[in-house]
């Protein structure tokens, strides 16, 4: 495991930007800014004519670190400790679970909780619990 610094100000500010993005997407397109819901609709079959907009939204997320790099000269490099096999397993579970449960950290954790949705509260408490249990198991028991 890699130690990380507690960054309350940057995290609060970054969180506010995520919130601002969610509000803007609702204002512009009337859509929930749920990354899993938008990502799964990049794949066929297509139910509506919104593919280009969804692709643009995801592309914006993808290039964000490059914009930070251009603006500041440095971009934080992610510390990815999981090996290829674990990444495949984790990716499958994250992809399957987020679509099966109609949302992930952004759709349920941010947008849903902000709308006081009971389903999103159940979802958020559930994924927090299993994620915490998984980290406990892999870091302290296995």
């Amino acid at each position: 495991m890699t130690a990380t610094d507690f960054t309350p100000v940057a995290s609060l500010l970054g969180g506010a930007l995520i919130g601002a993005s969610a509000v803007m997407l609702m204002a512009a397109k009337g859509r929930i800014a749920g990354v899993s819901g938008i990502a799964v609709r990049l794949l066929p079959p297509y139910a509506d004519g919104e593919l280009a907009g969804r692709l643009a939204f995801i592309l914006g997320i993808v290039v964000a670190p490059l914009v930070v790099l251009l603006a500041t000269g440095t971009a934080p490099v992610p510390t990815i400790e999981a090996g290829p096999a674990l990444l495949v397993l984790a990716g499958l579970l994250v992809g399957f679970g987020s679509v099966w449960g109609n949302g992930c950290t952004s759709g349920h954790g941010v947008c849903g909780l902000s709308r006081l949705s009971m389903r999103s509260l159940v979802a958020t408490l559930t994924f927090m619990a299993t994620a915490i249990a998984t980290v406990f198991l892999t870091r302290h028991l296995l």
Binding site: V35, S36, A39, I58, I61, V62, V63, A64, P65, L66, L69, A75, P76, V77, P78, I80, E81, A82, L86, L87, L89, A90, G91, L92, L93, V94, G95, F96, G97, S98, V99, W100, G101, N102, G103, C104, T105, S106, H108, R119, V122, A123, T124, T126, F127, M128, A129, T130, A131, I132, A133, T134, V135, T138
Partner: peptide, 29 residues
């Protein structure tokens, strides 16, 4: 589904530390 989906999602999130948004930002860096 609203319990099973997030439960599965959480296990994957805890295994690698990635949820969908951050995974997309990590593609370039």
């Amino acid at each position: 589904r609203i319990v099973a989906g997030p439960a599965i999602f959480g296990v994957g999130w805890g295994l690698a530390g990635f949820c969908p948004g951050p995974a997309f930002t990590a593609l370039t860096i």
